[in-house]
């Protein structure tokens, strides 16, 4: 990444809580990270770790119960004046996981793609709107004629392209992609990944990629944060994280990914992770131990991690 990095999105001590009273459940427990302009930031974790909740809280589907989210330095969590609210809605867009479920079955592609414009750009004439739809479809590699068809006429990969066109038409600068390729077949995945990469280069987009698939994340992300039980446990540049994973959970996660090489010993090196109960007298924190590499741990653990890094780097 470039030297002078400006954070586009800052998440500060985010907490998200569901339900009240006895059923109270804290899905995200104090998460802090920055996403820089133009980068692809990855959030990996297993099901139930809170990764999707973080994405949805950023886009303001879920309210925060603590902390704040800043976009270009301005707070966007909580109540916003109407105009700013519109503006943020336009600038942060989302691409969902399952293209079979996330498109309105009863609407034509034309409406699905342009729906956002009806809310934010009411003055647009019909011709202008149609033109925008055509442009968006072309940009994601679909034919403009498809605008008059229904979602069921398309394959999974094409539907995901429609989902991307729907986000692009708003001319966003930040896109949250929640498992955008998990539901797709291997040969279609690469097409969609390449499309997302191209769009990023062309439009200077910033991505938050949420996924459980580590090999895809390694390919597409500049930096990755690992989340476990609603807390970040490690965050670093992608290659650093894959080469020198420090937190035991990250190590367990990486060791569990099957390697596409039959010569690799099949039983070797599976690390299991058991979470130790926290010790209140010796709290753990999420710290930057070397520039750009954050790990969670107690004072003593962090010290040990620093030692590992300094001895390993020589």
């Amino acid at each position: 990444m470039s030297e002078q990095r400006t954070p586009l999105l800052q998440v500060r001590d985010m907490h998200v809580t569901f339900n009240r009273g006895r059923n109270r459940f804290e899905a995200v427990r104090g998460v802090t990270f920055d996403i820089f302009k133009g980068e692809t930031f990855g959030l990996v974790g297993e099901s139930g770790s809170g990764k999707t909740t973080i994405g949805r809280a950023i886009i303001r589907i879920y309210p925060l119960s603590g902390g704040e989210v800043l976009y270009e330095g301005k707070r966007i969590s909580g109540h916003l004046p109407r105009r700013e609210d519109r503006e943020i809605t336009r600038r942060i867009q989302m691409v969902f996981q399952d293209p079979m479920a996330s498109l309105n079955e009863r609407a034509k592609v034309d409406y699905i793609v342009s729906e956002g414009l009806y809310n934010t750009e009411k003055k647009l004439s019909r011709e202008e709107r149609d033109q925008r739809v055509r442009d968006a479809l072309l940009e994601v590699g679909l034919l403009p004629e498809f605008a008059s068809r229904f979602p069921h006429e398309f394959s999974g990969g094409q539907r995901q392209r429609i989902g991307i066109a729907r986000a692009l038409i708003m001319q966003p600068d930040f896109i949250i992609a929640d498992e955008p390729i998990s539901a797709l077949d291997v040969s279609i995945r690469a097409q969609v990944l390449n499309l997302l990469n191209e769009l990023q280069k062309k439009r200077g987009l910033t991505y938050l990629f949420i996924s459980h698939d580590l090999s895809v994340m390694r390919f597409i992300c500049d930096r990755i944060a690992v989340i476990h039980n609603g807390r970040l446990v490690e965050m670093a540049e992608t290659e650093t994280l894959f080469r020198h994973p420090l937190h035991p959970y990250t190590q367990a996660l990486l060791s569990a990914v099957p390697v596409p090489n039959p010569d690799v010993d099949r039983d070797a090196a599976l690390i299991t992770y058991e979470e130790k109960p926290g010790d209140p007298s010796n709290p753990s924190s999420f710290c930057e131990i070397v520039p750009g590499h954050f790990v969670e741990g107690t004072e003593r653990e962090l010290e040990a991690y620093r030692d590992i890094l300094s001895s390993g780097k020589e």
Binding site: E46, S47, H212, L214, A252, L253, S255, A256, V257, P258, D267, L270, T272, Y273
Partner: peptide
């Protein structure tokens, strides 16, 4: 299944 669970089931 999640990757860590997948590894256990494969084993």
């Amino acid at each position: 299944l999640d990757v860590t669970i997948q590894a256990q089931i494969l084993r």
